[in-house]
Simulated assay, not measured.
Amino acid sequence: MSERLMANITAPPAGGQGSQRVMYARGAGAHGVFVTEHAMTAYTKACFLQTTGQQTPVLVRFSTVFHGKGSPEAVRDPRCFAVKLHTQEGRYDIIGSHIPVSVRETAKFQEVEQALRPSSDTNEQNPSRYWELLTQMPESVHMLTWLFGNEGTPVSYRQMNGHSVQACKWINAEGAEVYVKYMWKSKQGARYFTPDEMAAMQASDYSHATRDLYAAIENGEYPQWELHVQVMTLEAADRLPFDPLDPTKIWPEEQFPFIQVGTMTLNQNPINYFGEVEKAVFSAEAIVPGIESAGMPRREAGAVQTNDFAQAGERIRLMQGSDYDWLVHNLISDLQQVPHETQLRAVRSFCRADVPLGKQLAAGLGIDLEHEPEG
């Protein structure tokens, strides 16, 4: 998601309590505290990261992205992970997703958002509509390996990680700048539904994730997330074979290891849910001194597109056992609902990422690649 789009992803309803968000409508939230455990003075002058033991109040809102207010919480959908830190120097909002990558351009994300919304006639998602669009966006393949892996269906809000997706810039007291990406690592562990488990939960409880978060806090089982950051110098960014500000890309952990910064604990349920959580505004423009937007991608789109399939392929080849099997199963199950031409484009895109996966998808969809016209 681009920063300009993310600035408004959790904007409040325009009217009274009867109004609803169009996106990010199905969610839950709570209050808590972030404790800085490792001072980040070498990288940023942001006030809440200067001293070990500093405590900063937070409000967090989790939500599905594309499904509506009345949808089940057990769905295949990115989860928005929005954190509002009430610092001594003002509000700082970190807006991200449980999936670490997205699509590249604001306009394209808005098209994806429209395609993934329920159809106006059936009030259900239409696979033909969104696959028609996604198969014409080669950079979406990396995101699709996450969304159609079981990572696309988290068991609960407590048991999922959060990623900033978009990099930001940290500036220290001497004016030195670095690029940074955030990850909220769940101390409850990250767990995901299989399709059968997801269907069973949909049948039994439409609001399981909201109930789970509320009950855990009420019972004193306060959920926690460790905040980790990856730090990249501007010089290192110039040497990479891909654009580090491209939201379709992950920064290699072996080159840019995660540094633990602190721990967030959610320990207070809202008293007035609508007033405290649903009306909360989260904005990428809500920043504090020492933190800035990283700006737009550093390289022309055409130069980046040669790398559109590399990280997707690496991720696919690292999958083992049931994780890989479920990716294949989930993709075939969804693509079986779309026209042949769209299936063929999808198969060819996945072949460019990983030939064995592409061939498995073709076999599962009854496509003979050797006898299909070039396209």
Rank of each mutant, 00 (worst) to 15 (best):
R4T: 14
N8V: 13
T10L: 15
A11C: 07
G15Y: 03
Q17G: 06
A25K: 09
V35S: 12
V35N: 06
E37H: 04
A39C: 09
A42E: 15
Y43P: 07
K45I: 03
C47T: 15
L49Q: 00
G53H: 08
Q55I: 10
T56P: 05
P57I: 06
S63L: 04
G70K: 07
S71C: 03
S71E: 09
P72Q: 07
A74C: 12
P78T: 07
V83F: 07
E89Q: 14
E89G: 00
E89A: 12
G90Q: 04
I95A: 01
I95S: 03
G96A: 10
S97P: 03
H98C: 12
I99E: 04
I99D: 04
E105G: 03
Q110N: 12
V112S: 06
S120T: 13
Q125K: 12
Q125L: 12
P127G: 08
P127Y: 06
W131H: 00
V141N: 05
V141M: 12
H142I: 05
H142P: 07
M143Q: 14
W146L: 07
N150Q: 13
G152Q: 02
P154R: 02
P154T: 04
S156M: 05
S156H: 06
R158F: 05
R158V: 12
R158N: 13
R158S: 11
H163R: 09
H163F: 15
V165K: 11
Q166C: 13
Q166H: 11
N172H: 09
E174N: 10
E174G: 03
E177Q: 15
E177L: 05
E177M: 12
V178A: 05
Y179C: 04
Y179P: 05
Y179A: 09
Y182N: 14
Q188A: 15
R191L: 14
Y192K: 03
F193K: 00
F193P: 00
M201L: 08
A203C: 01
D205G: 00
D205M: 00
S207F: 10
A209I: 07
T210A: 11
D212F: 04
Y214T: 14
I217Y: 03
N219I: 00
P223T: 05
W225S: 09
H228C: 13
L234D: 08
L234M: 12
A236G: 00
R239P: 01
R239V: 10
P241H: 12
P241Q: 09
D243Y: 02
D246V: 04
P247L: 02
W251K: 11
F256T: 07
F258G: 01
Q260K: 15
Q260V: 05
V261Y: 02
N269H: 07
N269T: 10
I271Q: 14
N272E: 13
E278A: 09
E278V: 12
A280G: 04
S283M: 03
P289H: 06
P297N: 01
P297W: 02
E300K: 08
A303R: 11
Q305V: 10
D308I: 04
A310P: 00
A310S: 09
E314C: 04
I316E: 06
R317A: 11
M319G: 02
D325K: 10
D325A: 15
W326R: 12
V328A: 02
H329Q: 15
N330G: 11
D334H: 05
Q336P: 03
T342K: 02
Q343F: 02
R348S: 08
S349I: 08
S349L: 15
F350L: 05
G358V: 01
G358R: 01
G358N: 00
L361Y: 03
G364T: 04
H371T: 11
